[in-house]
């Protein structure tokens, strides 16, 4: 019982409700603390970057607090990072949301909007709000081994809320694809120990909780 528990920093840059992320961590026994202090993020055992809302404002808030560099340092130390929703998008290089914005650029790629087709009766509704399937790109189940999706069934449903989606430059980082109104996009990716999901695992029932459990095991390494 003397062992020190790994602690994950839930990065607070004023953009979202962190309660559910903390509850999910608690549920799987992952000790978490909410912080907007770059020093605490820099030295944490791991970090979760959640978020909803606008990319530009999110990045502005991160930079103002020095959290962007803190996360770069954490990643450089080889500690795991999990980006969720807007957090996933900010890990990429840039977004076209309300003008061009630079992201953390930890994984090369960009963020684009679901194309609206007005007037069409079967038109795409944006944001996508609801449950949608994850499809493994190839070689399931092996390709999800040692990733946060380990143990998740191919075709499993997760809960999504978003108007923009990630387009990583290297298709090799894509962990899962999801199709919304005919648009197939990257719904999770992994590069080294950077993991990201467009969906909200903490809102996706038991299957989503499994992702937290997997992330906990990475934090313990």
């Amino acid at each position: 019982m003397a062992e020190t528990k790994r602690r994950v920093a839930v990065v607070d840059y004023g953009m979202c409700n962190l309660f559910s992320v903390q509850r999910a961590c608690e549920h799987v026994g992952l000790a978490s603390f909410v912080t907007s202090d770059p020093a605490a993020v820099r030295t944490a055992d791991a970090a979760i970057l959640p978020g909803v809302g606008a990319f530009g404002e999110g990045m502005r808030n991160m930079v103002q607090r020095g959290l962007d560099d803190a996360l770069r340092d954490l990643v450089a130390r080889g500690r795991p990072l999990l980006g969720i929703c807007l957090g996933m998008q900010m890990i990429l290089s840039q977004s076209e949301e309300f003008g061009d914005h630079r992201g953390l650029d930890l994984v090369p790629g960009r963020v684009v909007k679901f194309a609206l087709s007005p007037g069409d009766p079967g038109r795409i509704r944006v944001p996508q709000i609801g449950w949608n399937r994850l499809v493994a790109p190839a070689g399931y189940p092996g390709c999800w081994a040692d990733t946060p999706l380990q143990g998740v069934a191919d075709g499993e449903y997760m809960y999504f809320v978003h108007s923009f989606y990630a387009v990583p430059r290297d298709p090799g980082v894509v962990l899962s694809r999801t199709t919304y109104s005919g648009i197939e996009y990257c719904s999770s990716f992994r590069k080294d120990r950077i993991y990201a999901t467009q969906f909200h695992p903490e809102k996706s029932g038991p299957a989503g909780i499994m992702i937290y459990r997997n992330f906990k095991s990475f934090c313990d390494e």
């Binding site: 549920h27 449950w131 069934a153 499993e156 449903y157 029932g205 038991p206 299957a207 909780i209 499994m210």
Partner: peptide, 13 residues
């Protein structure tokens, strides 16, 4: 409709 897997259901622990 989403028909969830009949696996572990969190919340009982």
């Amino acid at each position: 409709c989403r028909l969830p897997n009949e696996g572990e259901v969190p919340g009982r622990g």
